[in-house]
Every structure is written in structure tokens, then in C-alpha cells.
Amino acid sequence: MRPAQARLFAVLATATLALTGCMANASTAGSEAPGLEASAPASLSAASSSAPPSSSNAIPGANTAGPTAATAPPSSTSVPTGLATYTFPDGRLSFKYPADWRVELFEASASPFVGTATVYDASGARQAEIYTGEIADGVSSPVTRTVFESVPVPGLQEQPDPAAHYSFYVDKVNDISTYRMHLTPGAPIAGAEMALGGIIRIGDRILIAEVDFIDNPFASEDAAKSWLAGQEGQSLRTLLMSISYA
């Protein structure tokens, strides 16, 4: 089962995101520097340059009180091999991905840097997006959550609290299931909870990293767990767990 469509929660970037006419950069597998072609991710929208940041810029869904214990990965996991490293133009944010996949960078602004790295698998299907900028907003709503896995990301533990976690879970609203695999501020809480915006603080900037799932990607929670234990699930888990900011 292959994720295909972006599901980032209503992200608003800085004023420079309006520069959609900018040249987009692309990075091929194993490259440390972006190339020359990309397209603007549909999940990002422009923010007014004259509008000052509001209180909505606070991290939504942050779990600052008593995160649940991290769960261990399934015992039957297929650990990916042959990884390449992608580093953003700022030289500080990086992640690893399968060497036969590719990364394309959309750069909305060079200074300060604002952009999104989109990761595609060997067949060309979009698998994940990693955005970094200065401002983002999130939307929260009541959900009932089942957490499959949540583990702190080693390369982001020196950043401001709440600590960044890789998380895979399902939120349900009126029997409609929304599966998410992304970075979360703290560990998501099982049971009744609010939807998570997934906004991570890195220094004076923010980071959003999420796997792109199609609508209703899994027939059941057991199917989701089986996918996680397989090669594609473990490749995307490894990607999110490898994100670091120096």
C-alpha cells in the first residue's frame, strides 16, 4: 500500500511563501545539495507579509504533561538498507531515505530559508514531506485515538520542549478513521484527545514532517500494523526517526 496524497494540517508559512514564482530546487538520491527543478507543495499556503504573528502560532496539540511511554517497533520489522542523506540548504536540517528514492526541494525563500522537501519512492509515488520555516498554524478537533507507536527522535532531542516524537496512530471521528505517521510535539495520548498539528520547534524555526497517506489507506488497524512491519512502513519510519537539526 503506497501513500500518495498530502495531509498536512492547514499549514501557513511566512510571507515569503507567496513567492511561488521562485525557482524550485530538486535533489536527487544521495545528493547533499538541491538541484534545479521542483513544484510548490499544494499543502502550503501563503501568509500575508503585513500580518503579524498571532497567538495561533503556538504549537497546537502539544503534550506537555505526562507523555505516554514510547512503544517498541514490531518484532517482525524489515529494516531498510542502502540509505542516502539529504541536507537542507541551511546545512543544519537533514534526514535519511532509501537510496533508490529521490528528494525534490521547493524553496520559497532563501533568506530566511523557507521550503519543503518532498520524498518520492522508486516508482515516483509521493511518500513524505518535510517543511521548515518560521511560522505555521495547526487545526485541532476532538478525536478518539489509537496509538500504534511513538518514539523520541534522537536528532531532535536538544531542541525546545515538547520533545519531538515519531508517531504512527489513527484518529477516529464518527467512525471515520484518519491514519497519520508524522513528527509530533510529545507523545500522542491514546483515547479521547485533540487532533495534532505536528508543529516541532527547532531553534527559532519550526519543522513539520509527515508521511502522505491516501484517504482510508488501511482496511483495518491490523492492516496498518502489518504495513508498518513491512519494507515501506519501516523505510518511512526510518526517514522520520533520522531527522536531525544541528
Rank of each mutant, 00 (worst) to 15 (best):
M1F: 10
R2Y: 15
R7H: 11
A15F: 08
T16S: 11
L17N: 05
L17G: 09
M23Y: 03
A24W: 01
N25H: 13
S27Q: 09
T28M: 06
G30L: 13
G30S: 13
E32N: 11
G35F: 12
E37Q: 05
A38R: 07
S39T: 13
A40W: 05
S43T: 07
L44V: 15
L44G: 04
A46T: 05
S48C: 13
S49V: 12
S49M: 14
S50K: 10
P52N: 10
P53E: 00
P53Q: 01
P53K: 01
S55K: 03
S56M: 00
N57R: 01
N63A: 02
N63R: 04
P67N: 02
P67L: 03
T68H: 03
A70P: 15
P73I: 08
P73Y: 07
P74T: 05
S78E: 05
S78T: 11
V79A: 04
P80E: 03
A84R: 00
A84N: 05
A84P: 02
D90V: 08
G91E: 03
G91C: 05
R92W: 03
L93M: 08
W101R: 09
R102I: 05
V103K: 12
V103M: 12
F106H: 10
S109G: 15
S111W: 01
P112K: 05
F113T: 11
F113S: 07
V114K: 00
V114D: 13
T116M: 08
Y120Q: 10
Y120I: 07
S123K: 15
G124A: 09
G124N: 11
G124V: 08
R126E: 15
Q127N: 06
A128K: 10
I130A: 09
I130T: 12
T132R: 06
S141D: 00
P142M: 02
V143D: 02
R145W: 01
V147T: 11
E149G: 06
V151P: 00
P152C: 04
P154M: 06
G155Y: 13
Q159W: 07
P160V: 07
D161Y: 09
P162F: 08
A163L: 09
Y166F: 15
Y166T: 04
D171A: 07
D175Y: 06
T184M: 14
T184G: 10
G186E: 01
A192Q: 02
A192E: 07
E193F: 14
M194R: 00
A195V: 01
I199P: 03
I200T: 04
I202V: 15
D204S: 14
D204M: 04
D204W: 01
I206M: 12
I208Q: 14
V211L: 11
F213Q: 04
F213V: 04
D215V: 13
N216D: 12
P217N: 12
P217S: 14
F218E: 08
S220K: 09
D222G: 03
A223L: 06
W227L: 07
L228V: 02
L236C: 14
R237P: 10
T238S: 13
T238K: 10
L239D: 06
I243F: 10
Y245L: 08
A246T: 09
